[in-house]
Design a binder for these strands. Structure first.
Length: 186
DNA sequence: ATGCAGATTGACT
DNA sequence: GTCAATCTGCATA
């Protein structure tokens, strides 16, 4: 499998969110490789999206959302959780990112179980803060290039899942946008 | 099955 | 000072 190229991430954020479904998120830690199929995403825009961290302009925390596409935007929230995004926006925008909300664990399941302190596969990485805990993704990965084979990157995959669009989770503003996407393989 | 409180910190107004 | 792109455990039915 090939890494997803930079050009993929310079499309409309919503398109990238949909098409990221089915691709493989890989996290390398020393000699171990953890991976999983991306099964849930959410798009966060720029000026068109009051729910986006980028809505009010650039700040020290969200600067990655305004940076080069194809890099990671990791933020800390609720005093204890990290969430991981892929920076993606087209030429009509200056910022945008896709929140990865769920993966189906593939490689390194034992290690992810240890990181999450659970044996339950379904509960391993089916949430934005669960997958970062399972894969040990923190501020250290902030801004890293997902198109390079390094600590964290994304692989292509030809499988085209069925996609269901819903309202985004956990936000107060712009709840009408159907920018949450889930993949179904059947 | 559904609902809610508590945890806990840093970014921003 | 406010509150967050969440998760967990416990309570209720």
């Amino acid at each position: 499998m090939r890494r997803v190229p930079r050009s993929f991430y310079s499309q409309d954020t919503v398109v990238v969110a949909k098409e990221l479904l089915g691709k493989i998120l890989v996290r390398k830690i020393g000699r171990h490789a953890l991976s999983g199929v991306i099964v849930e995403t959410e798009a966060y825009g720029h000026r068109d999206d009051p729910a986006s961290h980028a809505y009010r302009g650039i700040t020290p925390r969200n600067q990655a959302m305004f940076g080069q596409v194809g890099h990671a935007y990791v933020y800390f929230t609720y005093g204890m959780h990290y969430c991981m995004n892929a920076v993606a926006y087209d030429k009509d925008n200056d910022a945008g990112a896709v929140l990865i909300r769920g993966i189906q664990p593939k490689d390194g399941i034992e290690i992810m179980m240890k990181n999450r302190r659970t044996e339950n596969i379904t509960n391993l990485a089916n949430g934005p803060a669960k997958l970062t805990q399972a894969m040990k993704i923190t501020k250290k990965q902030y801004g890293q290039d997902l198109t390079r084979e390094s600590e964290i990157f994304i692989l292509d995959n030809d499988i085209k899942p069925r996609i269901i669009s819903k309202n985004r989770v956990g936000i107060r503003l712009a709840t009408e946008k159907l920018w949450n996407f889930k993949a179904y393989f059947n």
